[in-house]
Design a binder for these strands. Structure first.
Length: 186
DNA sequence: GCAAGGATATCG
DNA sequence: GATATCCTTGCA
């Protein structure tokens, strides 16, 4: 499990840094809803809006550890990997699918883009209430989370906004967990 | 080590 | 309207 915190207009690394816009509008809205955006033209990232309405802040879900539904996550990952590699030929698509099929379950959602691929999340999820107990995508209290150790570190991929105070340890993760993103080892 | 890929924010 | 940029990933 690995997450990062992003604040409002005072956080140069946050999408809310320039105030409300069409893309980040939900960050200024009610807490507990999903904010999904497209990064690098091909990967989605899932955020959970926090803070009261009118105060933009969100938590980026960078990696999760699959506990149940592993087969479903694997087939979802395989589907996107296959279609993405399809442009490079049939052999490449089959190789990509096979790589997903043989990877350990702990790596199925070990990255922000991979979390969304495993859960079939796209920008259409933006604005959905993640606290609704009947929603098909929702947050629940886990029974093991409270006992897990939590480590902190600097956020990843925001070197462009490397103000001194921005290297605050706003990335939180379970140390030694097999499902951390590859970037987290930096 | 770096290309792919598209929406978006920030300009002319 | 054009273009630089990006909270990444997988292949060379």
């Amino acid at each position: 499990m690995e997450v990062e915190a992003y604040r409002g207009p005072d956080d140069l690394a946050s999408h809310a840094r320039f105030g409300p816009s069409k893309r980040n509008a939900v960050m200024f809205g009610s807490p507990g809803v999903a904010y999904v955006y497209l990064v690098y033209g091909m990967y989605h990232c899932l955020n959970v809006v926090v803070e009261a309405e009118g105060r933009a802040a969100a938590v980026l879900i960078r990696a999760v550890e699959p506990l149940r539904g592993i087969d479903e996550m694997r087939s979802a990952r395989s589907a996107v990997a296959e279609s993405r590699a399809a442009g490079r030929g049939k052999a490449a698509a089959e190789a990509a699918a096979r790589r997903v099929a043989t990877m350990p379950a702990s790596r199925l959602a070990a990255g922000p883009g991979l979390v969304c691929a495993a859960f079939s999340i796209d920008t259409g999820m933006t604005g959905r209430d993640l606290c609704d107990p009947d929603a098909d995508l929702r947050l629940e209290l886990g029974d093991v989370a409270a006992e897990l150790p939590v480590a902190t570190g600097p956020r990843i991929g925001i070197d462009y906004a490397a103000e001194p105070w921005l290297s605050l340890p706003w990335r939180f993760f379970v140390p030694g967990n097999q499902s951390l993103s590859t970037g987290s080892s930096r």
